[in-house]
Design a protein around this nucleic acid. Structure first.
Lengths: 247, 247
DNA sequence: GGCCCTACTTGATCTGAGTCAAGGTCCTTC
DNA sequence: GAAGGACCTTGACTCAGATCAAGTAGGGCC
């Protein structure tokens, strides 16, 4: 039973993350209430967590693994509209159906709250509602940032944008900081990257090869990436700002 | 002084729209409080309402005219990330700077609330906070829908998608309904459409001509559009759903 | 160790949309 | 009613990225 206001509801000590939606400032009664409606769910890589149109019976956060939000057209063209990394929140309080598929890209563990009672608690607890609004605004900013990437950037810039987003997220998650070279494993296949960037997997592969040849990134195997110079990568991405976005 | 719960704060009778963010269920005291912090602003076509990075001192709704949210890269490439039509809400309660430019595309009138006191009222008034969360979720859905358009649709599908969005918005605004042919004026130049769709203005022009030649739309002059068959248009847009999205 | 399978790479070719350029249309202003 | 200008259209050509088609690399399993 943690009592620091920073930590979220009590038992989440066994999550590596805290529920960012419901952390901070929750008092003891609220934490206990949350505890009662909390449960864990696991998914295997490739499993669909929620189908587009389905009822969502929970809200929650990713504990470990990666999930994606994807939209699909009748003819099979797909576009990822969001990437969920550990600590990211999933859920649409007050909404019924999901407007996209949520798919586990790797093995996935989520920490969930039952939706109905969560919504009731939210209605009674302004600071939770406020926190959710903040998070939704963050997601909206990220989505709009991504619209610029999809609409106006070249294939090379798109790849650089994706890599810099993943690098920054990884740095903040592992608290390794952004100074010096960045090292991480790509959490996505070439195809998933293509679906996120509105490209084909062949183009993704070619551009990654090109960035490697030009020394912007190093690759060990197919997934292990080293970025010797983040500034250089961000130039390649066409980013003027140093702000960091992503769902 | 309207007392119907449906109508928003009292004096907004002189807006053709009601503040959707703060409408319904506001009691008399709340309406009076809103009244005190309300004011109108007008902009000429082409004027920038808010520059990216600026402090936003208000939240509000479009009364008449069109505004766009646009992001610009250093080299001048621009992408519209949102379209604000009458009754749409603008504002980021709890946020400081704007992450994009807000530009008046036509002459524009907005009905605004001063931000600080609005936020204070919101903190005290759960149903306003709740309404804002709902609206933000709507915008997020619209943004993600648009990511599919930008990432995966052809030029022809993009144009058809934009036309069907405008047609639907127009129908709901004028309460004219969706049965029979739809008639409306395009509120955007070819260039603005291009910036919204991630295309060039030449491609927009060519695709509009093509849709006209194929009888999907009729054009009188350059802006006055008739859509004889919405179903046909939505097929052209590649939409399976009949759901209607947009910021 | 050899086999298979999935993930990835690379090459050759094609094509949709961009670029560059030349008009056309219609509105405004004097 | 002529001149100017914003907005739009259309044509010719180019090119980035898609498509089609072989491959290679590496991990798991018998």
């Amino acid at each position: 039973m943690s009592t620091q206001p920073q930590l979220c509801h009590s038992n989440c000590d066994d999550c590596p993350i805290r529920h960012r939606a419901v952390c901070a400032h929750c008092d003891k009664d609220e934490l206990e209430e949350l505890e009662e409606i909390k449960y864990y769910r696991s998914f295997e890589a490739g499993q669909t967590v929620i189908w587009s149109g389905d009822q969502m019976s929970f809200v929650g956060s990713v504990v470990s693994g990666i999930a994606t939000l994807t939209q699909t057209m009748e003819d099979g063209r797909t576009q990822m509209v969001g990437l969920l990394l550990p600590s990211d929140f999933v859920g649409r309080p007050g909404r019924e159906g999901a407007p996209y598929d949520v798919v586990a890209t790797t093995d996935l563990v989520m920490c969930c709250f039952r939706k109905k009672p969560f919504e009731e608690l939210m209605a009674r607890t302004p600071h939770i509602a406020h926190r959710l609004l903040e998070m939704t605004l963050d997601e909206l900013d990220a989505a709009r940032e991504w619209m610029l990437v999809l609409g106006r950037k070249t294939a090379r810039e798109k790849i650089a944008s994706l890599l810099s987003i993943i690098a920054r997220r990884d740095a903040s998650l592992t608290k390794r900081g952004m100074s010096g070279p960045m090292v991480f494993d790509l959490p996505l296949t070439r195809e998933a990257m293509a679906d996120y960037l509105g490209l084909t997997l062949e183009t993704v592969s070619r551009q990654i090869s090109a960035l490697k040849k030009d020394g912007v990134i190093h690759l060990e195997g197919k997934r292990h990436v080293t970025i010797p110079d983040m500034g250089r990568l961000m130039e390649e991405a066409g980013d003027d700002t140093d702000g960091g976005f992503l769902v």
